[in-house]
Design a binder for these strands. Structure first.
Length: 554
RNA sequence: UGGGUUAUGGUGUAAAGGUAGCACUACAGUUUUUGGUACUGUCUGUCUAGGUUCGAAUCCUAGUAACCCUACCA
């Protein structure tokens, strides 16, 4: 059987907890804030949280962390649900931090009663000032001395809308001298007279992250609350609140977020790319968003495989984008239909092939799939081949077409180039070739072996298509570490459009879910911009190209 | 002389005192009607300096580096 895979540190913690009988079942959650679209970094978290529950027989909630009405929208909620589902996961419950606003308010009241929270009238500047710095302790102000009764009344009045935004906050009373800034009497409620996408105008005070997240975890009996490294300093506060509130003890564990070369993973920056029109939208195929990758033609299987391969640990990492591409190719190779499309055509005439004759050639849909079947490809006297597949004076080791040189036309005949026709500018306009009738695919009795095989499309049967080729969105390997503004590193050539490529007729019936390999070109899928009149294909990823490497070397 | 976290090939990630392994990348080859796929092989690594031990990536001591923490964001 398969060798047992080593556990990541979170799996180890869970297996220990389970072995000790700390829990019967584990409960995890995926807690996005609905203020942007999900990206591949979220995919890592989704695969982790849902994957753990699946592996250890537990469940996972989808919980929207919607405590800041000024940045959150229903559009984002909808996109997040769609993306999680598309990735192949099912949540046990669809929940919202805003469902708990009343419970959270009661928790705050409990803290006030215990003398562990107070209403502070200071301005935000004053609060920042009194907070000190990492190396200098903060100071408590006179508001911290208010009685529980006074705080209770003030907090009720805050809720009732008696005070304007920013005039008062509720703070936990912990330790202004703590070396952990988050324990220096953190703000847990602020006044925001803002319309919330779910609770409307019911509230004008909203809990802060630290007073919502852990409490929501606790309410849902989350056993393992998994987040990223930057929340490590929040853990003492997370634990403090649970302890003082005497509620279900959820525990927080932190792992390193995903970074990928030539990508940005900050929602703020991605939003900027969208609003400033550097890309066509959140689902632009160049975006590292789940919706972008979906439109690009990446499969959920390949993204899950990627998340599995990158592992889970606590050290900062920068994953090679090539690994994602590898996972995409690996899956697409198994499932995609092979088709022929010529991007940059040059006409090829087979002089000894009868005019008007058309043969339907059989070509396999997928050599990786024995049961994949064949499709028919029309062959005739006039064809298009790729301009780069001919060289008048061939480079060494070039085994494509050249004067006097023979190649096979994929699933058809072996041909030989006899003549090159140029226009007055010296541009090649036509290649005149002859074919070997006895070399037909499937019944080749020519005895000849040729090194090159070319893809082709019959001129008379060609279907026009637009092709969109994508390259990395940024020119810097580590965009976040690069000097200056990230927008300075946007790759101006990240999108290249081929207006008119020529496709074999089988492609005319394409639909959005089909995946293709355009032979010798790469993996492609239909774009949603396609119409009945116009086919548009996105390149998901190129094929590995040994010849390109060879050329680069010299 | 603030606190916290992390250091293993080019990139990730394993090894819980006992052969430094796996994947990607790179390179070389075999097969091939895709210069694809598949297959085979090769290169490259324990942050530094001491110490404990028969034996250290792992334990101890002292350094070094990177990242995080001073939002009424999450």
């Amino acid at each position: 059987m398969s060798e047992e895979k080593s556990l990541n540190f979170i799996e180890e913690i869970i297996e220990n907890d389970l072995a000790e009988g700390k829990y019967d079942k584990i409960v995890t959650r995926f807690p996005p804030e609905p203020n942007g679209y999900l990206h591949v970094g979220h995919a890592k978290s989704i695969c982790l949280n849902f994957g753990l529950a699946k592996k250890y027989g537990g469940k996972t909630n989808l919980r929207f962390d919607d405590t800041n009405p000024s940045t959150e929208e229903t559009e984002y909620v909808d996109s997040i649900k769609e993306d999680v589902k598309w990735l192949g996961f099912e949540w046990a419950n669809e929940l919202y931090a805003s469902d708990y606003f009343e419970a959270l308010y009661q928790f705050a009241t409990a803290l006030i009663k215990k003398g562990l929270a107070y209403v502070d009238d200071s301005t935000s500047d004053e609060i920042a000032e009194q907070k000190g710095t990492p190396s200098a302790a903060g100071k408590r102000n006179q508001y911290a001395d208010r009685t529980a009764e006074e705080n209770q009344i003030l907090f009720e009045e805050m809720r009732a809308g008696r005070y304007p935004d920013g005039s008062k906050v509720l703070r936990a009373k912990i330790d202004m001298a703590s070396s952990n800034m988050l324990l220096r009497d953190p703000i847990i409620y602020r006044i925001k007279h803002a319309h919330h996408h779910r609770t409307g105008d019911d509230w004008c005070i909203y809990p802060m992250y630290d007073f919502a997240h852990g409490q929501s975890d606790s309410i849902e009996n989350i056993t393992h609350s998994i987040c990223t490294l930057e929340f490590i300093p929040h853990r003492p506060l997370y634990d403090w609140l649970i302890e003082k509130l005497e509620i279900f003890p959820s525990h927080q564990y932190e792992f390193a977020r995903l970074n990928i070369t030539y990508c940005i993973m900050s929602k703020r920056k991605l939003l900027q790319l969208v609003t400033e029109n550097f890309v066509s939208g959140w689902d632009d195929p160049r975006m590292p968003t789940i919706s972008g990758m979906r439109r690009r033609g990446f499969t959920p299987e390949s993204i899950r495989e990627f998340c599995d391969k990158i592992g889970v640990a606590k050290r900062e990492n920068l994953i090679d984008f090539g690994l994602l591409e590898f996972c995409v190719r690996e899956h697409l190779n198994r499932i995609s239909f092979r088709r022929m499309v010529v991007f940059d055509p040059v006409k090829l005439v087979i002089t000894n092939y009868e005019e008007g004759r058309v043969e339907m050639m059989q070509s396999e849909n997928n050599p990786e799939d024995e049961n994949g079947g064949n499709r028919e490809v029309p062959f005739s006297r006039e064809l298009y081949i790729e301009r780069e597949d001919f060289m008048e004076t061939p480079a060494k080791k070039y085994f494509r077409l050249a004067p006097g040189q023979m190649v096979r036309l994929k699933s058809a005949y072996i041909i030989k180039c006899d003549d090159v026709i140029k226009d007055s500018a010296g541009e090649i306009v036509e290649l005149r070739c002859s074919y070997l009738p006895e070399s037909k695919s499937g019944g080749d009795s020519s005895g000849l072996k040729v090194k090159g095989t070319l893809h082709w499309v019959s001129v008379a049967h060609a279907v026009a298509a637009e092709i969109r080729l994508y390259d990395r969105l940024f020119t810097a390997e580590n965009v976040d570490a690069a000097e200056g503004d990230f927008k300075d590193y946007i790759n101006p050539y990240s999108l290249q459009v081929i207006q008119t490529a020529f496709a074999e007729p089988a492609l005319s019936g394409s639909n959005l879910i089909d995946r293709y390999q355009f032979i010798r070109k790469g993996y492609f899928c239909l774009d949603k911009d396609s119409t009945a009149e116009k086919l548009i294909f996105n390149r998901s990823v190129t094929l590995k190209d040994a010849w390109a490497k060879e050329v680069k070397k010299s």
